[in-house]
């Protein structure tokens, strides 16, 4: 059974990626997309908009709210046959990117 995972990365203090890293990343993304492993990916504005609901009252506030380091700055929705494959994908991703940290969470959804 295939499973979907959301991989996210937090902000990195390090210098912006070199053109070489960018090119390698682009090739990686393209191949994973073609293979059907990578379903969607993108970067996120670390500032964001904060929304809270309480007692029927919705409050919307413009960010930022977190330290740049803690904010999630990119995501990838992937589809693999096991958790281990997801981890292996993540490993390859970080080998290209370099230092940093992130999360892998299984996505439960319509695939049922």
């Amino acid at each position: 059974m295939t499973m979907r995972f959301l991989m996210t990365t937090k902000g990195i203090d390090a210098a912006p990626p070199t053109p070489e890293v960018m090119a390698e990343m682009a090739a990686f993304v393209e191949e994973m997309t073609r293979a059907g492993v990578l379903l969607a990916t993108g970067g996120l504005d670390p500032a964001g908009i904060h929304v809270s609901a309480s007692g029927g009252k919705i409050t919307v506030t413009d960010g930022p709210f977190t330290e740049a380091k803690e904010a999630i700055v990119s995501f990838a929705l992937i589809e693999t046959r096991s958790k281990e494959e997801a981890v292996e994908m993540s490993r390859r991703f970080w080998k290209i990117i370099g230092d940093g940290e992130g999360h892998i969470q299984q996505v439960f959804g319509p695939q049922g």
Binding site: R81, S82, K83, E84, E85, V87, E88
Partner: peptide, 9 residues
């Protein structure tokens, strides 16, 4: 688990 996953890939 990693051996299995890597093998399949």
């Amino acid at each position: 688990g990693v051996v299995g996953a890597v093998w399949r890939m």
